[in-house]
Nucleic acid binder design. Structure first.
Length: 288
RNA sequence: GCUGGGAUAGUGAAGCGGUCAAACACGGCAGACUGUAAAUCUGCUGGCUCAGCCUUCGGGGGUUCGAAUCCCUCUCCCAGCA
């Protein structure tokens, strides 16, 4: 592995154009795309996740899409394990792996090589799920395990109990032979792109997609919130069609904002506009 | 044209003489977060020279020690009658 290709991570908020950019680059320099997205792993969640269509992929290999059913558990651990495997495989073929997506924690699990422990005990999890926050906190104190910073966040409480503390193995810098480029975007531009995309999704049959998913799987977490959640409200007649459009715009804007909050933690992201990003990545790949 | 109802911060909406810069929700801003993360959770959200002060509750005028809250009047909306 003398001449191993670098890992190119392309991050950015939803609707920033990272997918399109990655496909262009991958075509140009023989790359493969790994989708770093917590929702496109689910089969059937296509329109609302802006999952690239076969047409859009243009023959570029895409990994991590359609891995599980929406009612299957899919965690950070699964993501990390598979992505690392695919990075290895892609490099083995002499191709450049592009890690592209907007799921900050998932991306960091690769870039910062999170050391995740053993799989949590399912029975314990079931038991903890039934407890309220107060009891979870008492249990943590009883066990003298470290109380998480967000002690109002029950997920963190549950995790603290499962791992007997808080995992603090955060590396200071990203792994070797990797570059992270962030697609910087003007807020107003994103707003407009989101709005346009909402209409495109709706025209493409997004409402039917959600209806079918709910019929088939019930109300699963992957489609409880965000775009999917709003359509569910519409299906329950809690929103008019016009209200649905506005809510979808709001909820997607909020997603973009939350994504940015996560990305700001990583000081090694090179923020560039889409054209500059394309040049920069091409330059990295030529010199490596 | 008459009769009722209403106009409250970015929006919706409480408040109906003092404890109101004004509940709550939404929206917005900022943040935390290593196992469902597009999750979950936290703080802020009139202005300022910020433990205090100033300007707000459609406009104007009154009553009162004191008004978003009472009275008069004007403007605009909604409903019923013409």
């Amino acid at each position: 592995m003398v001449n191993q290709k670098p890992l190119i991570a392309i991050v950015g908020p939803t609707a920033s154009g990272k997918t399109g950019l990655a496909i262009r680059l991958a075509k140009k320099i023989n790359g493969a795309i790994i989708c770093a997205d917590s929702r496109t792993v689910y089969r059937g969640m296509n329109i609302g996740t802006a999952k690239p269509t076969n047409d859009e992929m243009g023959g570029v290999a895409h990994y991590m899409l359609d891995l599980v059913e929406p009612n299957d558990a899919f965690t950070l651990y699964d993501f990390q394990r598979l992505v690392n495997k695919y990075i290895h495989e892609i490099r083995g073929k002499g191709q450049v792996p592009f890690l592209v997506g907007g799921s900050g924690m998932y991306i960091d699990s690769i870039l910062f090589d999170y050391q995740l422990g053993d799989e949590p005990d399912k029975l314990l999890r079931q038991k903890l799920d039934k407890m309220n926050n107060t009891d979870l906190l008492s249990l943590i104190k009883e066990q003298h395990t470290e109380v998480p910073i967000n002690y109002d966040n029950r997920r963190h409480l549950i995790r603290a109990i499962e791992q007997g503390g808080v995992n603090k193995n955060r590396r200071k810098s990203i792994i070797n032979n990797a570059y992270v480029v962030g697609i910087s975007t003007d807020k107003n531009v994103i707003e407009q792109r989101i709005r346009d995309r909402v209409n495109i999704m709706l025209d493409a049959g997004f409402v039917d997609e959600v209806r079918n998913l709910v019929e088939k799987y019930g109300d699963q977490e992957p489609f409880r919130n965000n775009l999917y959640g709003e359509v569910q409200k519409y299906l329950r007649n809690e929103l008019t069609y016009d209200e649905l459009i506005e809510r979808m715009v709001i909820v997607d804007r909020q997603l973009a904002k939350k994504q940015m909050t996560w990305f700001r933690r990583n000081e090694q992201i090179e923020w560039l506009n889409i054209d500059a990003a394309e040049k920069r990545i091409s330059q990295i790949l030529i010199s490596s």
